[in-house]
Amino acid sequence: MKRMPNAKILRDYIFLALFTTCLFLPAKGEGVLYISETPMKAASGRSAGPGGHAEHRASASRSYYLSAEDLSSDSEVLVLRPDGSRGEASMHICGEGLMLTVDTRPMDASSDGIFLVYVVDRHVENETLLVRVAKLNLLNHSCRWGHEYKFNSERLRAKFSDEVPLDITASPLWDGNFHSRTMSGDVIGVQALRYGKPLEGAKISLSTQGGWTKTFRTDDSGTASVQLIRDYYPAQWSEFSRDKKGTFRILAEAEFEEMGVLGDQPYTKVRVTTSLPWKYASSRREYQSYAYGLSLGATFMVVSGLGVFIYRERRKKSYREIQFDEHR
C-alpha cells in the first residue's frame, strides 16, 4: 500500500511554503490546525459570506484552505475515499493562504460519498510532541448519480482512520443523499479515537462561528454528545434566510505520557489536537410551523366538507324556479 501519495511534491510545496512564510510567522505550531472551505484571510477583512461548495453537483477536484501555513516538513496528508481506497491531494501556497486540493476524480458514482481528508502535522517543542490533526469530511456527491446509497448504512456511516493519532467522528452531519443536514438544535454525537480505539477522557470542545463554545470530556466508550445552539438572530424577520449557514468546529485535545524522538528532537510528552469543521443551518422549527400548517389544512377540510354537505342538503329541496334579474 502506498503510504503517502504525492509525498515528494507535497514536501516540495511545504518547503516552499515554509521558506516564504516563516518570516511572518510569530511562533511555530501555535494554535489549532483546521481546514476551511473559505479562505482564512477573508474572515478578518470582508465577510466570508455563505459561499461554500455545491453539494448537489460533482467537480473534478475540491479546494480548501488551511488555517496555518507553518506546517513542518514531516506533515502528512491522508485522503480516504468512500470505498476505503487512498485518494490524492496536493498543497500549494496561493494569495489566500495554504491551499489543499483534493482530487475527486473520476466524476462518476463510484466515489459517491464522504472522502476523509486529514492533514497531520508534528513537531517538538519543550520536549513535547505537538501533533496537530485537521480532519475534513468531504461530500463528493452529484444528484445526477442518483441516490443509490440512501439506505446503505456502511456508506453513510461517519468513518475514521486507525492511522490517525487522534481521530474524531461526529454524526449526524449528512443525510442519505449525502447533503449536509445539521441544523441548530441538533444533538451531535462525537467520538474520539486514538489510532482507531475509543479514547476516554479526551477534551472535546465545539465552537461556533459566533463564538459560542462548549467543552466536555468523552466517556469510557470515547463518546460525548452536545446540542447545537441557535445563534442566528436577524433583526427583522424579513431579513431571515433559511439558506444561511453557520460553521462550527469540533476540537479534540488529549495528552499522553510517552517518550520518543521526532527527527533528532526527543520528547517525553505527546499533545494531540484534532479539528473537524462542519456547517449548520437554521432549524426548520424556526421558520416552519405544524400548528399553522395543520390548522390551515383542517380548515380547508372542514370548509370544503361543509360546502359539500350544505350543497347536498340544498339539493334535497325540490327544484327551484329560474329567476331572471330585472336589471340586466
Partner: peptide
Amino acid sequence: SQLTIDFSSKTMTVLTG
C-alpha cells in the same frame, strides 16, 4: 415535515399555505 407552513419568506409562506 411537509405538513408545515414555511415562514422563511413571503413566497414560501404563500406556497406552503
